[in-house]
Design a protein around this nucleic acid. Sequence first.
DNA 1: TCATTAAAGTTAT
DNA 2: ATAACTTTAATGA
Length: 198
Amino acid sequence: MVIKEEILQSVGAVTRRYRPSEIIFNEGDVPNYYYQIVIGDVKLNNYNDEGKEIIQTLLEDGQSIGESLLFMDKPYPINAIALTNCTILRLPKTVFFDLLKLYPEICLDMNKLLSQRLYFKLIMAQNLSSQNPTAKLKVLMDYLKSFQKEQSPYSFRIPLTRQQMASLTGLCVETAIRTIKLMERNKIVKIENRKILY
DNA sequence: TCATTAAAGTTAT
DNA sequence: ATAACTTTAATGA
């Protein structure tokens, strides 16, 4: 969790609920709030030239949404959409900055978070250009698995649909599916009733 | 080699 | 029931 919920609530953060596929903010909106997920999954996406969805990031419980834009004077370059039922805390930008000034620790945590976002982007950028599908999917899965305690083979059930994996790596679903099958044959992953174990 | 299209089966809501 | 996801196959860049 980025900022303790009690702190957010004590300075007036408002709890909002979202249904699956409900929009939290849109590309082009002006960032006026700090958002933090209490419960639920959120995706940040946009759409390329003609229609294909590109998922930029998937976020879950405790993470903040689009926080990097609060530090700049630019509209959001992405949409934020709830994937599940979400409970989200929302705090006006000005109060968010007051918090940063008041608590050095929150400031530090925010730096850590931004660094982590940047790291993910660096890894994925390298991934998007060049590389074969197997390598792309492997980089994604390695990243996801890196947060797990258990590191033994096939211990990690990928919490994404093939659709989402494709949208994160710039592949089409069919290629993602074929590649995952290939990886199964090569003992890189196991598949148990459609779930990918890595 | 991978994307695209189409068609059909499966799962989730 | 309907939408979303998964899978296979054919075709084209």
